[in-house]
Design a protein around this nucleic acid. Structure first.
Lengths: 148, 148
DNA sequence: TACTCAATGCAATTTAGTTGCATTATAGCA
DNA sequence: TGCTATAATGCAACTAAATTGCATTGAGTA
């Protein structure tokens, strides 16, 4: 699905910024933070406003084009949902957050566990976040330690 | 273990504020946010400084007296760890966050699942957060809907 | 009791996110 | 194609959360 098609399907207006954000999210396979998206677009020469990006992302979130993942670092990240992107991400899988480089990645193909909650509670969603060092950072760390 | 004993064991100075924060965390069984702790102490007549509380909580976190739980609401909450409190909380269990009243509770006795990560990654911790409506808020909501 | 360094309190600053409002531009329709 | 309603944008100002620097206070130890 193209950015245009996604926007049309959700009844959102087809604007330059929205197409750019969607293209970026389609291209990257992992959840991106507001800042990451902002900098990526800015460095691509796109003139853009912080506030408009906030509003764009929350519009996408409300329209269920993206889902939000809250990291243990306090940063919210956004990723396309499968229904819109066709790339297999339903949002219901664990995420991995590297505490060194700050990148988050999806651990696709792995289910979230069933959790028992107190009687009477209503479960609306779950989020499983694994944190530590990603492959790259773990490798670099080892190198640094060897050098020291 | 008493607040004094916990502080002594960790080599932290035994001050009024720290004892109060620890007493509160010992008393409450669920993770509390900075704001919740601040207001609880303030309403108990304790004169306190926001900044000092931030520093106190991060000192506790570094000393592994408390563990931090990041909610899907973007709020960090703190809870005593078992090693210090003796109350059975190791931190490695799911948490439930009510999106209406904002209270978080521990789902003790339930394990976190094993998660496979890409080769080379180092896992340092996991966090499983279930969100929705707690028993009280779900009951109230039903009542409201009936009334309408 | 005196000394040292951790802890505190206050002011100022940074950062993230929000709100209001005037302007612009998209999408639907004559 | 041009017109219109309204959604989206851009800017300024604001709110809230968290951090930093620094002078002062106070806990623990010799």
């Amino acid at each position: 699905m193209t950015p245009q098609e996604i926007l049309r399907e959700k009844g959102l207006k087809n604007t330059e910024l929205r197409r750019r954000v969607l293209s970026l999210l389609l291209e990257k396979q992992d959840p991106l933070s507001h800042v990451e998206i902002f900098e990526e677009l800015a460095s691509a020469g796109q003139a853009l406003d912080r506030v408009t990006l906030y509003r764009t992302l929350s519009a996408f979130s409300e329209a269920r084009i993206v889902h939000k993942v809250q990291g243990t670092d306090g940063t919210v990240r956004f990723r396309l949902l499968r229904a819109s992107s066709g790339d297999g991400c339903l949002g219901n899988h664990p995420h991995f957050l590297c505490r060194k480089c700050g990148r988050m990645s999806c651990l696709l193909e792995q289910p979230l566990p069933r959790v028992d909650v107190p009687a009477g509670s209503v479960v609306e969603g779950k989020q499983l976040l694994v944190f530590g060092l990603c492959g790259d950072c773990a490798a670099n760390k080892k190198t640094e330690e060897t050098v020291l």
